[in-house]
């Protein structure tokens, strides 16, 4: 049986799309039985996709230099790149920050929050720096397939993965195509 490898990661997202991925339940096992091999994901020790991974799946918008790096890495190492969920597909709710200056935004979040005492804005080499604008994945790298939805339904994710496994071009229609 031909093995198809899949790696996934999340950028600026809420992990809801990955929850939907898990919501495929027994169909995830079915896909694995049909040859899908899940490699690097946010819950595995291996975080980085190997060169030549068949499918890269990214959730979340591109908001920091770290996200940009991960997006480019996935593009470089994966044959097919899938944008999973509204944030990766369109930019999503994260783009609301594009209309507020970054300093003001961070202050509001880390210092001026009503419940915060002596807050400070976290800084350091491990923390990504905000890009000027929060973007959809396709504004940074080329994307092959899109699964919109907030979160996308397990059915939509299943359909796309199944199609790829079967060598078909995935296409979402009717009930499977949703923007919310």
């Amino acid at each position: 049986m031909k093995k198809i490898t899949l790696a996934s990661d999340w950028l600026e997202g809420c992990a809801g799309c990955h929850m939907s991925l898990l919501d495929m339940d027994e169909r995830l096992v079915e896909l694995i039985n049909e040859g899908l091999v899940i490699t690097a994901t946010p819950i595995t020790d291996l975080k980085v996709p190997a060169f030549g991974t068949d499918i890269g799946v990214l959730e979340g918008a591109v908001a920091t230099d770290h996200h940009e790096e991960v997006a480019k890495l996935f593009r470089e190492r994966c044959k097919i790149l899938v944008a999973l969920g509204d944030c990766a597909v369109f930019g999503g709710i994260n783009t609301m920050r594009n209309y507020i200056p970054i300093e003001e935004l961070l202050k509001r979040g880390y210092v001026n929050t009503e419940s915060t005492v002596e807050g400070k804005i976290p800084q350091g080499p491990g923390i990504g720096k905000h890009l000027k604008k929060c973007m959809a994945l396709n504004e940074v790298v080329k994307v092959d397939f899109y699964i919109p939805g907030c979160p996308p339904s397990a059915d939509a994710i299943y359909k796309v993965l199944k199609d790829i496994l079967e060598g078909k071009t995935p296409e979402l229609k009717e009930e499977l195509l949703k923007y919310d």
Partner: peptide, 26 residues
Amino acid sequence: HYCMYCESSGNCELQDLGYKFGLDHF
């Protein structure tokens, strides 16, 4: 047109057209 936080999502003629034409990204 980020539908996920729009009040009219599910009751919007623009969104309906997006679905009808299979628009899946910008």
